[in-house]
Design a protein around this nucleic acid. Structure first.
Lengths: 206, 206
DNA sequence: ATGAAGTTGAACCGAGAAGTACAATCGACG
DNA sequence: CGTCGATTGTACTTCTCGGTTCAACTTCAT
């Protein structure tokens, strides 16, 4: 069975290498040759696992999306057990989300999605449905619990979640120049603080 | 001199056609042949005006960005003479901005930017600097005036502008599935209302 | 009319990349 | 040890597309 494991290893290496190269060069510029090299594998081996360059792209994208989503969901955990200082825990979660939103994989994924939407309309279904939508849902759930315990305004937790994420990640686009430049950790902190401050001002209980 | 006008006409047609085709197919998939056809022009004529496919892309992008920016700036005008009902005029501006953000040209421009950032790092300078940054600046100016007359909280108009735009355009990404689907006019209205409502709750004078 | 500038259509060149064929090699399992 | 399947390197085919060339044609100024 270790032969099977070998196959799995190769497959994994191919998917990761593919995502790296696609992220670096874009779909059209990335050669299957390059991907094979990045994965430490020969070109025919790639075609042994994936029929097409297109399906290779889809699978690589899907895998990356899964990883990103699970990371972000995990970042929401502290909201399940908020301490006495709600703004503080909100700020912690906000900072963590910002950190995840600015990391390499997330930015590349977003760019790749945007770029190949026209040629791969189905990629949206693979990624978006299990992407921001799920995250918003989970966040709305947490906020609803907080509203029930009287620590947040009790109207439309879905809207609250949507606006929380908007306040948080909206300014990101300009600050990172569409994901091309890194942002210092201190700036991330102040962005998180600013977002949480106005969120609490608008959604906190008077 | 009408010969010159003829040349200008061709050039304009080429730029517009190029943007259309680039938007439809992406940079790599768009053939110079296709662009020439779209512009109603022969292929050598394209190379008569633009040295490269790359510079053609840059010029087309720049032209589109100029148009988009001026439209958005114009949408800010009502804020110069706010009536008695500040939220109402804010809502009007918000709706107009949303409408502009969801139209064909804007979405295509954003997609093209995201997709070719890696291959055209300089395109950012052509577009972003005369893009959202300018808009934020103009909006911040308007908000500062409102703050001076005591109708808004008088702290950090730049931050206020940033968050206003974030509240407004943040939810757009999910709703339009990254610009691939249109949003009904009614939904745009309610989105504008929701954004303005929480903005005023957070930034209005108590 | 004539000549210059611009445009056109068609054909052509060369590079680069997707996908394939094949023989050699490696590694596990009976 | 021998066999079978996966892997590898290489070379090849084929096709697309950027960019150019060129001769014929339009348009307009003098």
């Amino acid at each position: 069975m270790s032969t099977t494991r070998g196959r799995i290893d190769k497959r994994q290496a191919i998917l990761e290498g593919a995502f790296t190269v696609f992220a670096r060069l874009g779909y059209a510029q990335a050669g299957v040759q390059d991907i094979a090299a990045e994965a430490g594998v020969a070109k025919p081996t790639v075609y042994n696992h994936m029929t097409d360059k297109a399906t290779l792209f889809r699978h690589a994208l899907e895998a990356a999306a899964q990883t990103v989503l699970s990371e972000r969901l995990a970042a929401l955990d502290p909201l399940a057990t908020p301490g006495d200082d709600l703004p503080a825990t909100l700020e912690g979660v906000a900072y963590e989300l910002l950190r995840l939103h600015t990391d390499q994989r997330s930015c590349s994924l977003k760019r790749l999605l945007y770029s190949e939407i026209t040629t791969f309309p189905d990629a949206l279904d693979l990624v978006l449905d299990s992407g921001p939508h799920r995250l918003n849902q989970a966040l709305a759930d947490r906020l609803a619990r907080l509203a029930l315990s009287g620590r947040l305004r009790a109207t439309d937790p879905d809207l609250a979640a949507e606006q929380f994420m908007a306040l948080l990640t909206g300014p990101l686009e300009a600050r990172t120049r569409m994901g091309t430049e890194q942002v210092t950790d201190a700036e991330l902190r102040t962005m998180a603080r600013a977002a949480v401050e106005t969120f609490v001002r608008a959604w906190g209980t008077p």
